[in-house]
């Protein structure tokens, strides 16, 4: 009983440390998306390089693909861009670029300058589709499986680590499924 009384404050302290540790090591900017495991929201958007042509979510069914949300005004998009260009070169997975709340000429010029890794670029000028996909911080990258289900979301600029540890293994797994 005496030992218990002495150990109790220590136990309470230990629990507190665990809570604070977990709480502090989490990034509050990363809000878990409720869309993971749900069908990708439907869109039908004009293509950046051919505004008379459109692309819809359903046309991507049957293959694993990535949706990368970017804009020419987005500074951290420039950080992740070389990784996307590199990824496009390997032709492992098609990346659809969602040009989010941008001006078309600025977007096209940006891609000419930094390289165009996108199989198709689509235009979300007013950000409506972005809202449907729960986009709140550009850049964001989604992994969509063959059945059109969102399987993963990366918030913020892609990193080599995120690509190699998480996204590419998942893509390979989904492609073989």
């Amino acid at each position: 009983m005496k030992a218990l009384r002495l150990l109790l404050p220590l136990a309470v302290f230990a629990i507190l440390v665990v809570f604070l540790w977990v709480g502090l090591s989490r990034d509050p900017r990363e809000v878990p998306s409720p869309l993971i495991g749900k069908p990708a929201p439907e869109f039908r958007l004009p293509q950046l390089h051919a505004m008379d042509k459109q692309l819809s979510t359903s046309e991507m069914k049957g293959q694993v693909w990535l949706l990368n949300v970017w804009a020419s005004w987005c500074v951290s998009c420039r950080i992740e861009h070389p990784l996307l260009v590199e990824l496009a070169r390997t032709k492992v997975v098609p990346v659809i670029g969602l040009n989010y709340k941008d001006k078309n000429d600025l977007g096209i010029a940006w891609l000419q300058r930094y390289g165009d890794p996108y199989s198709i670029s689509i235009v979300d000028a007013d950000g409506r589709v972005g809202i449907d996909w729960g986009v709140y911080g550009v850049p964001e990258t989604f992994v969509v499986d063959k059945s059109g289900m969102i399987r993963y979301k990366h918030i913020g600029p892609l990193t080599t680590e995120a690509l190699e540890r998480k996204i590419l293994p998942l893509v390979r797994e989904l492609q073989n499924a």
């Binding site: 809000v31 878990p32 998306s33 409720p34 869309l35 809202i131 449907d132 996909w133 729960g134 709140y136």
Partner: peptide, 8 residues
């Protein structure tokens, strides 16, 4: 909004 952004 919750369907898109979660309870957050």
């Amino acid at each position: 909004l919750v369907a898109r952004y979660g309870d957050f």
